[in-house]
Design a protein around this nucleic acid. Structure first.
Length: 212
DNA sequence: CACCAGGCAAGTA
DNA sequence: TACTTGCATGGT
């Protein structure tokens, strides 16, 4: 299995090239993007982030001072804006109260501790936590999303009912523990999913990994 | 028009 | 434990 996962990675990289994830300029932007991206098309997330940048709100200080209703207004295009505004405010408040509003200090936690703190917050589930750990903090945790699950299951590499944690373990036990590899591999799976493994329109005949 | 997108939490039985 | 539902915009 480990060799198969590595073969798939190299095949995807050859087919698509490097994806240059995460599309965010700073760790804070990546953190915010991770929450806004929950069950939402990236085109909508990028509009919401552009609004925040335009209003000069992309800093922990500005976000902490901003009333939740106003934050909701700015992130409207990303959908679920009331929930996501609350989730962002909770996250910012956590960093302020437990880590002196210092994102670097927060990210200095050991990988496991950082993940647990993120998971303890309302609105941060496994995928969002792992995305933040990998793409914002730069620590090696493999991110599993719906595409990862669907792609592996359609290729009979896991069962349809596989849990998040066992899929994550499968990758992490099969691959060298490298941030760059985890980063690129997840991004490639999303790329593959968008183009070839959509829920209702799979293009399995042309799929770059149809033989795996 | 229906369906989907880089989820998560809360409610029900 | 195992389903179900609400949250919401913008693209296809």
């Amino acid at each position: 299995m480990s060799d198969r996962l590595l073969d798939i990675y190299h095949t995807l990289l050859a087919a698509f090239g490097p994806q240059h994830w995460w599309p965010g300029d700073t760790p804070l932007e990546v953190l915010v993007g991770a929450v806004l991206a929950q069950n939402t098309a990236w085109s909508n997330v990028s509009r919401a982030i552009a609004n925040l940048k335009e209003a000069n709100l992309l800093s922990l200080e500005a976000l902490a001072a901003l009333p939740v209703e106003e934050l909701a207004g700015h992130i409207r295009p990303s959908g679920y804006f009331n929930q996501k505004a609350l989730r962002l405010k909770n996250l910012v408040h956590h960093i302020d109260s437990l880590h002196q509003g210092d994102l670097e200090q927060f990210f200095d936690l050991k990988t496991g501790a950082l993940r647990e703190e993120l998971l303890s917050l309302k609105g941060i589930g496994p995928e969002t936590a792992d995305s933040i750990v990998l793409y914002a903090a730069g620590k090696p945790l493999f991110v599993v999303d719906t595409y990862t699950h669907r792609i592996l299951s359609r290729h009979n590499l896991i069962g349809e009912e596989a849990y998040y944690h066992e899929i994550q373990e499968l990758f992490m036990h099969s691959l060298p523990e490298e941030v760059e590899l985890y980063n690129e591999y997840h991004a490639l799976l999303v790329r593959l999913g968008k183009e070839y493994c959509k829920k209702s329109k799979p293009r399995c005949d042309d799929c770059p990994i149809r033989d795996f």
